[in-house]
Design a protein around this nucleic acid. Structure first.
Lengths: 223, 223
DNA sequence: TCCCAAATTATGTCTAGACATAATGGATAA
DNA sequence: TTATCCATTATGTCTAGACATAATTTGGGA
């Protein structure tokens, strides 16, 4: 591994682990070149890399700062329903229907299995089935998901490294229609998402949205 | 504008304009440092930037080459239905239902308005309504969309710089249901996409997919 | 003729400087 | 007290070298 790569990896790890928190200042180029005993250009390359990836923000005279969890990047990266609902000024609530731990071959190991409903202004927005690997996130066993939604909690608690989405449309079966308070056969937008940290699956979630009330957006390219 | 930025912009323009074609070799660092009269590190920074953005590929001893249109990046960038269908070994066909030119305030200027159906193995997969700005893409007026789908043609013909997606679910109204050969009220996955080249909208498209036959995928993060 | 070794070439990384730029914060003047 | 100027500081860009690395080409020997 090259030196500038090692520097940026070290910093990325410290950011993802939470040691360096959003908004916090990271060491200056001069401090880092002393820490690693290298030239400034090498440190500069590492920091430019992190800035390009959106992990840090660089401000002249002020220093380099850990960026807030990217909200301006493609929404499809990880939609946080709680944040989205409250951002548009609506009242948010998550209702936990069921929680149990069991073994899951898919996440190979003990798994917390949850179902629940996301409400916006007391109207059901999405029905969620989620599995969380207790191997990858042991803290999940003691978290209280009646207070905050599992998705919101996970985003704050776990530094993920990879996400995979599948988006499809589904005619609501009776079980989901009842949960969402829509007619049986109504169009639902279904998002299935797997989230990894390094090589371990952290969580697998399937969310069915009321098709008339929700849509995903994503944009790519500069500007 | 800084020098390394200017170098990478110049090269990006030559790639997007088609002067430098995929697979073709671009000037070496030494040639570029002579062209721009600067140090190698400056050229190197520009080329590293382009490589990071996936526009070129760098091979030791061989040189730097224009990359093929990104197929390994998030699928959601721009799904080319024709490529997707043929990639899984199915027979693809596009049926042009209607084509007319008119003025469109949304794309401010003369616009080619198209509707058509994408078939996979002679089964309707998607109903498409598309508008193409003839200001941005005058060649579209003479293209033959009974031979290839407009989406496929545009991807090859126009160097886009920005895309915006909206994905939603819809219960098929009679007009769409008939086109797709599904029941009225069946769940459809609707993708609306706006594509820009610089500040000009190139095309706006709305595609309704048979929800049982299609889904979008996207992945983010390393590896 | 075929295979291996050496020379060549282009990129990859790094250094130790330089000057530029922007923002901050304190000192000075109105 | 308030406004303005200036020094400080951290990043931004650039240079002219250096050695490393990987892959191709070439030349020679079996």
């Amino acid at each position: 591994m090259t030196l500038h790569r090692r520097i940026s990896r070290d910093l990325e790890d410290r950011i993802r682990s939470g040691e360096l928190r959003p908004g916090q200042r990271i060491p200056t180029e001069h401090e880092l070149m002393q820490t690693y005993g290298c030239a400034r250009m090498t440190v500069n390359k590492a920091l430019s890399q992190l800035a390009g990836d959106g992990l840090i923000e660089r401000r002249k005279r002020a220093g380099s700062f850990v960026r807030l969890p990217r909200l301006d990047t493609p929404v499809l990266e990880i939609p946080d329903i709680e944040v989205e609902v409250t951002a548009r000024g609506d009242r948010y609530r998550f209702e936990l229907l069921n929680a149990q731990t069991r073994n899951d071959s898919d996440l190979n190991g003990p798994t917390l299995s949850l179902t629940g409903i996301h409400y916006a202004q007391d109207r059901a927005l999405a029905f969620e089935e989620r599995r969380i690997s207790l191997t990858a996130v042991p803290e999940a066993a003691t978290a209280d998901f009646t207070v905050q939604s599992p998705g919101h909690w996970l985003l704050q608690a776990v530094p993920w490294t990879r996400v995979e989405h599948m988006v499809s449309a589904l005619a609501a079966p009776a079980s989901i229609a009842a949960r969402l308070g829509v007619d049986k056969g109504a169009a639902c937008l279904v998002v299935e998402r797997r989230t990894w940290k390094d090589d371990a699956v952290v969580t697998v979630v399937r969310q069915a949205f009321d098709g008339t009330a929700y849509r995903l957006t994503a944009s790519f390219g500069r500007n």
